[in-house]
Design a protein around this nucleic acid. Sequence first.
DNA 1: CTGAAAGCGCTTACAG
DNA 2: CTGAAAGCGCTTACAG
Lengths: 348, 348
Amino acid sequence: MADRVSTLQSAGVYQRSTIRDVAAKADVSVTTASRALNGTGRMSDETRERVRAAASALDYRPNSIARGLVQQRSFTLGLLTNDTYGRFTLPVAAGLSAAMADRGVSVFLSAGEYEPESLKLNLGAMEEKRVDGLVITGKRIDRGLPIELPPLGMPVVYVYASAPEGAVSFVPDDVNAAKNAVDHLIGLGRRKIAHITGPKAFKAANLRAAGWHSAVEGAGLEPFGDAIFSAWTEAHGYDMAHALIEAGERPDAIFCGNDQIARGVIDAFALMGIRVPDDIAIVGFDNWEVFAKATRPPLTSVDMGLPDLGRSAGLALLDMIDGKPVEPGIRQMPCTLVVRQSCGVKSD
Amino acid sequence: MADRVSTLQSAGVYQRSTIRDVAAKADVSVTTASRALNGTGRMSDETRERVRAAASALDYRPNSIARGLVQQRSFTLGLLTNDTYGRFTLPVAAGLSAAMADRGVSVFLSAGEYEPESLKLNLGAMEEKRVDGLVITGKRIDRGLPIELPPLGMPVVYVYASAPEGAVSFVPDDVNAAKNAVDHLIGLGRRKIAHITGPKAFKAANLRAAGWHSAVEGAGLEPFGDAIFSAWTEAHGYDMAHALIEAGERPDAIFCGNDQIARGVIDAFALMGIRVPDDIAIVGFDNWEVFAKATRPPLTSVDMGLPDLGRSAGLALLDMIDGKPVEPGIRQMPCTLVVRQSCGVKSD
DNA sequence: CTGAAAGCGCTTACAG
DNA sequence: CTGAAAGCGCTTACAG
């Protein structure tokens, strides 16, 4: 049988070489070729090498569809997200997809709103593709899927989304992240630290407020007023900054629940002639660089390490797929504070 | 043979039903079951219905891996992007993935920098998965892949990236989008329209400048100075706004090459006491809502319709996969102007 | 150390 | 209108 040369281009059709071509060229059985290529079985180094050379000469690419059929694994994962906007999903997806690529696993993206209809469509597609597992991610840690997951017969992990009882999930450690950010301000000598954050209905807002509270009390200080629950927007940061200043006594620092609020606060202060950080230090949350780097001065902010969240979730999912025991529950992953100038750190 | 019930959960293993189970339950051959389910072949309505009922009772999901093996199609696409940041990619991916989901096609996401190493890794994975086609996207229309694509034997389309000669590619129609935006300003009575945009090295910046020029000249006006090439950042918008005002005569409108520049300009004007739009109208480009909605006043901006770009690219790719003739070349897709308040339109 | 054969779950000529 | 059989490209008991 003539080799099917992989670069052959007849009638626009590209014929890939198969393991049979490799076996024929190396003059071994298909069985041996398979084992040589996969590093399984025992055989002489010479044989293994001969097979590998043949594969390489033919530019052989194993067909993972065929492999998947017999091994009952597709080496694919599904990623479901409702964060069309991409603020959270793309970093998670990038970390996940990079970690998976190293292990020969590819990730199907299913972006869109979490509407029951489209969700079912996408889940159905992933079931038909026989994905080995599912990563479900969102844009807030207290909202999950709006539908009950049908019994899927595959492992699922949640990232930055609420998960049902007994599931494996990964979220940032909001409380400690907030605590560390506020500790940092305290370490820089700030004593009157206010907190402006998103809506009370968001769990993340409450956790960050708790971290703020705990840092302040841990240092033997009084919280500067109550946490101000508002909305996650610049406009609200702007308005709340005005309200805070008009209320009378000034804080010497504000820990903001996200970068957009921090941005609004800084803009308001600029127009009021309040200097950041000299008069009031500001720290944000998200480390969303288009915002954090664009404020004047650049914003110190908490980085949730979303790529790592995606990576960790993917690795846990792979373990589950391999049948290894994985502890259920919520994993709170550590965040890091990215220090820029808005917090008043001395530059060297 | 007993049906393998799809909800059976033995030793943690979930046994899906196969077409054999469906055939057995409907008391037909596997051949007939296949045809009934796919709507091919001719058979009595009664038979087809009986097969469908059996499939539904067993919660049968066709295994697209098995189907792919015989049909030599995987019903998957690969999406390659270097826009880790996600500004352009996620909208494109969402449009692509939604349009594909309706057709039973799933999309592999490969996000990361365009580093030759990781690119080869990802391409290799997609070849092994036997994707039916590839969508290559980026974050600027004049940069493509840093590696020569090996002969892949599969169709490729480019979106928001530069494409090799003879390829099929989709980009926004920057020239006309800019022209329309400036025409809008002219229609509102503005006569001295300046242009601040990104670096001269970016093709998009030159195209938008050309559109600005053409609109101004088309209306029999003089361009207000040369196009100001700068950088795509707020900081540069801010600085250029200062430079423009200090230079002497004021424009009555500025068309900005992106929303971040527009944001910087508006912020600078706010601090200078220049009123937008009363004194100077501003229009941006990208319609990136976190920016466009956060400026005071909200920003009128060009929307490139990225989801539609992804959608169109996917449909073209599907045609190519089906062997239909697809004209090579660059398709410039129309953009729309989203009117808010910064351009000075009268509110009703 | 190596190979012939069965089989993963489908589709599709081919035959009736 | 319906079915038996071959085959997509692999892996893996089983046998030697």
